[in-house]
Design a protein around this nucleic acid. Sequence first.
DNA 1: ATGTCC
Length: 390
Amino acid sequence: MGNLIPSAKVNILANHKVWLEDNAIQQLHTTAQLAHIRAAVGLPDLHAGRGYPIGAAFFSTEHFYPALVGGDIGCGMALWQTDLLRHKVSGRKLAKQLGNIDGSLSGDDLQAAADAVQQLLAQHALRHDYASLPLDAHSMTASVGTIGGGNHFAELLQTDTVYDSDTAPDPSRVYLLVHSGSRGLGGAILREHVEQYGHHGLQAASTAASAYLAQHNTALAYAKLNRDWIAKRILAAWKTPARCLLDIHHNHVLPARINGCDGYLHRKGATPSDQGWVMVPGSRGDYSYLLAPTDSSEYLYSLAHGAGRKWARQDCYGRLSGKYTAQDLHQTRFGSTVVCGDKGLLFEEAPAAYKNVDAVVMTLVEAGLCRLIARYKPMLTYKKGDSACC
DNA sequence: ATGTCC
């Protein structure tokens, strides 16, 4: 026989309750066969992506793959506890109070964002003067505080069930969950990388690897800055103080030591289990779970990052337009309000397009990877302003 | 996913 490539260990966390698409499993195995990949994990929200699966983590040695992180470097979830009391607010009223937040920040906020971007660029240049960013400061500033498209959202939540009353956050308050990323920056970094190196990845001990990691780390910081400003502008509109409970990236590649072996841990739609509590959101018509990770060492220190798609975006309108009007989709089974001025997105992100989050989360719990802290249900989900053109 | 490909 020919050369034996040391095969990566592939571990899929699933059971009869969660449906995994064959194509996604195929993508996981194919990706696991790339050179230098030592371990691959599929979480219960695993679904097919553009060549590489989402809801997956990969560990490699001596080499890493920017393409596995994808274009939205630094995408993640931030959870804020507001001072608003749940029995005193309505999602509909707060939606009206919020108005349209699709555009750039303005006034003092825009200036503050510009200063923050300059500081980010200065730190980047100071440490990595050989790796300029493929997006200018003006564009980066313009996107700060904007949610973006796809599966990104901002959501107002109320507590539905408390599982751990000693540690769960105050159930009388309402919570703000922000899911967004590095907007145009991450995509530009990946595009430039792929133009130069294709999908072969990078030798870790190379200048190109250092340059990519410098850009990647800046994108992580920029994505967090973006989530911070999305929350700030919403909280300002609602006139409430708030504190950030967590802010965790689920798309990144980090140096890691796994089973005594130094290498790189790629997460693509996989939530770190070694950074404190995490929030796993369902669709906008389903619950979100606050979880305390326990031991995920068998699964590359990762948890599901959401419910996971069940239907491809392009199939949603065809499957749902006979059953629902756009108007129907502006509210959910919980009676929560959906702000989405983009009709295509309204259908693509319909609750029916996603798997059952209870099954996904229970699979994590039953495997011993985490315990439940509390469950939340949406009052308002903001995707795109109502005046958005479509 | 996307200062989105025409």
